[in-house]
């Protein structure tokens, strides 16, 4: 198939940025979106231009590095997929595809389609852990039974890959889905209880400090989340934060 690609180019956080338009032919449906981008970059390099910078690594939908806003949606039109798993069979001959970076003041553009998501790391550093030393001299793993339903739900929350599609999608650039997924994982497990209140308070505080927007419960984040993290997590965080605030810690 033949495609028209409108790609965002931006030389750094201070640059204003603009769209470049490219024509690409001989794209096949079996190509992943990023392989299509590889072909485009190969062409650009051979023509003496500077290739488009974009983040990517594992290309199997788990590292959370790839991050493109394709035709108005984070990770493009597919559901439950990252950009690297999106395949060109989702498009048809003659399509125009607009590709933009995640846009949020908390995710400044590094170059072109690459953004800086270190705000997520700082939120985790604020409390997204269980304070246990790595001595190995802890309880036996089976000492505390965990109901399967709780373990499964904690797992579902923990599958978040930190790609930032929730922020990119949210009309307010809110990070609530990301933060609540981590808060939930620990809130559901016995190991997370001792620091439960402190964790949620500190992580929310850091989230606000990073300049993410507020949650208006549109639910867009959960729809676009490649791992299907759901809004229950946000409600749980709202509840936990309220509890922590009211009862102190």
């Amino acid at each position: 198939m033949n495609l028209t690609l409108k790609v965002w180019r931006q030389n750094g956080p201070q640059d204003k940025g603009h769209f470049d338009t490219h024509q690409l032919s001989d794209v096949t449906g079996d190509m992943s979106f990023l392989e299509m981008m590889d072909v485009l970059n190969d062409k650009i390099i051979r023509e003496g231009g500077e290739p488009i910078a974009f983040d990517h690594d594992c290309r199997e939908g788990i590292c959370g590095m790839c991050s493109m806003f394709i035709n108005g949606e984070a990770h493009g039109p597919g559901r439950g997929v990252t950009t690297c798993q999106l395949h060109m069979r989702s498009f048809k001959d003659g399509d125009t595809i607009t590709i933009e970076p995640w846009r949020a003041s908390a995710f400044p553009v590094v170059k072109d389609l690459t953004v800086d998501r270190s705000a997520f790391d700082r939120i985790i550093q604020a409390g997204g852990y269980v304070s246990v030393n790595t001595s190995g001299e802890t309880l036996d793993a089976n000492a505390i039974p965990v109901p399967k339903a709780d373990a499964d739900e904690a797992f579902n929350a923990a599958t978040c890959i930190g790609c930032g599609a929730c922020v990119a999608t949210c009309k307010n650039a809110s990070a609530m889905l990301f933060v609540s997924a981590k808060v939930s994982q620990f809130a559901l497990l016995p190991q997370g209880q001792p620091e439960r209140k402190r964790r949620v308070t500190r992580m929310v505080e850091q989230m606000d400090k990073e300049g993410f927007g507020n949650c208006t419960n549109t639910g867009a984040c959960a729809v676009e989340c490649p791992k299907g993290i759901d809004l229950t997590n946000i409600a749980r965080m709202n509840r936990d934060f309220l509890n922590a605030s009211v009862t102190g810690q």
């Binding site: 949606e73 933009e100 846009r103 003041s105 009309k171 307010n172 507020n214 208006t216």
Partner: peptide
Amino acid sequence: LTLQNRKARPARYAVEKGSANAGWSSRNM
């Protein structure tokens, strides 16, 4: 809240398909 939300996304998307993932009223409160 609205002003903060605006500030959180200073540069808008050229193409934004809000209807793909959220209801109309939720996006226009």
